[in-house]
């Protein structure tokens, strides 16, 4: 049985939604961080699916850009989390309430 592109696109949309909802609902900074990665990987899946459907290598090349940039973002993000962890020994977003929007 072969699956057509629509299934992959749907899966990507579901993953993206899970990531977005998770980012808004969860309070642990590390988990929020993983949710962002989930969203980015959903984007990658969409790109690869479209690249296959359109028979265009450009979409797959774009995925490499996303991967590399996501890696750079992870480095910065973990650095920020570590520096906060050192200062207060926990990474719950609810603890961060000095500045009220």
């Amino acid at each position: 049985m072969t699956l057509d592109g629509g299934w992959y696109l749907t899966l990507a949309a579901v993953l993206f939604t899970i990531g977005a909802v998770g980012l808004l609902v969860r309070r642990n900074v590390l988990v929020m961080f993983m949710c962002v990665e989930l969203m980015l990987n959903a984007v990658n899946l969409t790109f690869v699916t479209f690249a296959r459907m359109l028979d265009d290598i450009g979409g797959q090349a774009l995925v490499f850009f996303v991967l590399v940039v996501a890696a750079a973002e992870v480095v910065v993000g973990l650095g920020i989390i570590v520096s906060i962890f050192r200062r207060r020994g926990g990474t719950t977003a609810d603890d961060l309430h000095l500045l009220k929007g």
Partner: peptide
């Protein structure tokens, strides 16, 4: 406060990129 500013900016910035 600077840490908090940084983390909020980071999380929202990455969400925006995604």
């Amino acid at each position: 406060r600077s840490n908090e500013a940084c983390l909020k900016y980071y999380l929202l910035g990455v969400l925006a990129s995604a």
